[in-house]
Design a binder for these strands. Sequence first.
DNA 1: TCAAAGATTGCAGGATGACGCAAGTACGCA
DNA 2: TGCGTACTTGCGTCATCCTGCAATCTTTGA
Lengths: 128, 128
Amino acid sequence: MTQVRNRRTPATPKQAAACRGPLDKLLDPVLFKAFSDPTRVALIGCIAKCGRGCSVGEVAECCSVDFSVVSRHLALLARSGVLEATKDGRTVFYRVRYAELCRSLRSLADALDECCPAKGGAGNGKCC
Amino acid sequence: MTQVRNRRTPATPKQAAACRGPLDKLLDPVLFKAFSDPTRVALIGCIAKCGRGCSVGEVAECCSVDFSVVSRHLALLARSGVLEATKDGRTVFYRVRYAELCRSLRSLADALDECCPAKGGAGNGKCC
DNA sequence: TCAAAGATTGCAGGATGACGCAAGTACGCA
DNA sequence: TGCGTACTTGCGTCATCCTGCAATCTTTGA
């Protein structure tokens, strides 16, 4: 009985933690950490609504923090996969990775739905 | 020309930052901060996959941190709107707010899509 | 080759957050 | 009423992060 593949609702949180599901890959702290700072969120919204690649200098005009802070935040956002950097001469353009971001968010929402008991989740074998 | 309602693509990030769109309400640092810590993420995944309300003690068995740490994290997650707390006697059951969470994630994805130039966004008046 | 523009990086400060221990609170049961 | 369980809260410590200033790097244009 020790090797039985758990395809039903885990009885306890400990059992739930032991089984790996789609949720575990999608709940990425690194991605969400990018969205956890007010300044960074402002920068993301700024670039997202602009709809094009923006230089560090342009973005720095949007907020009250130092130029170097903006540079650092944008670099971090690029490392997190939120933004994409393109260098053109001495100017670096940062643009939002709309497709990848939307896919991650919707996949996470789907994975949560799969776990939701009200929607027949957690017992359908898709969560764990 | 100063009062013209901007319903087209903002020319600069500064203009984009000035106009309020759906994205600004959905990019909530408080919500994403909840997902930014590895321990918290583990707790969320644990409760989510379990699919039912879990007590603090049960959840504490899943991870290696102190009981008090788990209690604090769960309380924070409840304040952030990720979890929902129900008290039954001396036991507090925390459960994932699947519906609200999924709605927030999908709304954000939709709002980002509205901004994406490749999908005709940022010029359709829905982003700003 | 030199100067200027655009951006990154090193450094130090201050703030925030995660953690464990211990004490305290709330509730149920005998 | 007393005791044990379940959880919360206060406190101190340590690590991480955000920020601004200054120096540096890279690239362009004269």
